[in-house]
């Protein structure tokens, strides 16, 4: 079975977010980029399923410029077989979805796995768009994914519960915990990753449908009002009379 795992290159979760002086771009200076944490679930689960099936391939795909290659290599070190990079800045979710759909179609992948959402742009939309572009189902967000032949059984999180969904290949799923324990690269993986194929292709499609005019940081909190532990009950009065939230 052919697995395609889409990984996004995002600022590390501890990054202090700042923008360029005109507030038009994210300030990348000094920022450490990582594989989007949700995408690690997709990658590890694809590798586990391939191993369980005893055959198949896991291809990682990133839409990004050359500076994302260290994280693509990391995905290869974790256990993907080969990689594709679409050589373009990811302008918006639709642009990214078009690239993924084109590659998925050309390579006739059976299972297309993504993360729940990118932690930088928080779109939660690429998976649905790719499913629609390819005319196949999308299950998002999936907490569990098992395969038996060409049929997948997934648990999809819904507000207040979960759904058990069955779909046949090809399909798209976006992954989140507790699907698996994301793997980290070992020494052997890091060595072999260097020689695994990484293909660079140019973008296609109609292009972005949105653009960012300006970024802004949230307003600063006014500072905490401390209530002495002895008079904890006072807090409840403040919440009712001052904050008016209860």
């Amino acid at each position: 079975m052919k697995f395609l795992v889409c990984i996004s290159n995002v600022p590390d979760t501890t990054t202090k977010i700042t923008f360029t002086p005109d507030n038009k771009e994210f300030n990348k200076a000094g920022v450490q980029f990582v594989i989007n944490p949700w995408d690690e679930y997709a990658l590890t689960r694809a590798i586990e399923l391939k191993e369980a099936q005893g055959s198949g391939t896991v291809t990682v795909l990133n839409v990004g410029e050359a500076d994302t290659e260290p994280n693509i290599r990391k995905a290869l070190a974790i256990g993907a077989d080969d990689a594709i990079r679409v050589n373009a800045a990811p302008k918006d979710a639709y642009f990214v979805a078009e690239q993924i759909a084109a590659i998925a179609k050309e390579g006739a992948y059976d299972v297309i796995l993504m993360g729940k959402e990118s932690i930088d742009y928080n779109g939660f939309q690429v998976h649905g768009m790719v499913g629609e572009l390819l005319g196949i189902p999308t299950v998002a967000p999936a907490m569990k994914l098992d395969m038996s032949g060409n049929t997948a059984t997934l648990e999809r999180e819904i507000e207040g519960g979960k759904e058990i969904v069955e779909v046949n290949t090809p399909f798209v799923a976006s992954c989140q915990q507790p699907m698996c324990e994301p793997r980290i690269p070992n020494m052997r993986g890091i060595m072999t990753a260097r020689t695994k194929p990484l293909k660079v292709v140019e973008p296609t499609g109609e292009g972005a449908r949105t653009s960012v005019a300006e970024y802004a940081l949230p307003p600063k909190k006014q500072g905490v009002k401390l209530i002495p532990a002895e008079s904890a009950g006072e807090l409840i009065k403040l919440l009712r009379n001052e904050a008016k939230v209860i």
């Binding site: 977010i17 949105t210 005019a213």
Partner: peptide
Amino acid sequence: AFSGKAFADVV
């Protein structure tokens, strides 16, 4: 955007 750490004005 950025997991609650920022906002973006999107056209």
